[in-house]
Amino acid sequence: MTTTRALSLLGVDRIHGAGNSAVHALRGLTIEVAAGELVAVMGPSGSGKSTLLNLAGGLDRATAGQVLVDGVELGELDAKALARLRRHKVGYVFQDFNLIPSLTAAENVALPLELDGVRSRPARQRALLALDEVGLEDLADRLPQDMSGGQQQRVAIARAVVGERSLILADEPTGALDSETGEQVMRLLRARCAQGVAALLVTHDAGHAAWADRVVFLRDGAALDDTGSASGPESLLPETAR
């Protein structure tokens, strides 16, 4: 338990507004994600999933409690340091991919590196490597409009992990994909986690959440329950052997 978590939310409250009209988006929420772990969060609309992702990614600040990325408390950083940490440590994957339409796959993946001051040649080389890892090396020079949804999401995942980034925040990453393609995306996220990346995934889809090591159920801004760490498949047999 003493190892540094890739992401820790410790007793986090997020209250919008004040007084009678105050909305408690999160109440005393604690969630930790270790390096190499894939955690899924499920909950109905309004349960606080989006707020959770915004806080974890430093896009929003907690009203109370602590948010730590790689052991660094986000609440203690000024805006500039926070932006820097976000660029270096955190990758985002969205439902609608959010690729820049006028840039090729390789340029999209290289962009965060170039924004970080990496020269364009080495940035492109690392982008090609990242695309290779998601099986898209042949499509490096294609524009998003010439790719399928599944291919675009794989580009987005390559972009999310390029560089030294250690935390992926994914907001319904399979929401716009058919189930087969969604499964490929989950396989890919798992593969990234197997290489040490931590991922926090928000989804409505139980079938895709089940790819996670742990599923947290969110209700009214608090974690109601989670499925704990995995037990072995042997435990299946007495369940289903009827």
Binding site: A209, W211, A212, T227, G228, A230, P233, L236, E239
Partner: peptide, 10 residues
């Protein structure tokens, strides 16, 4: 969900 996770692992 735990059962679904185990099945998915298989």
């Amino acid at each position: 969900m735990q059962r679904l996770q185990e099945l998915t692992r298989l």
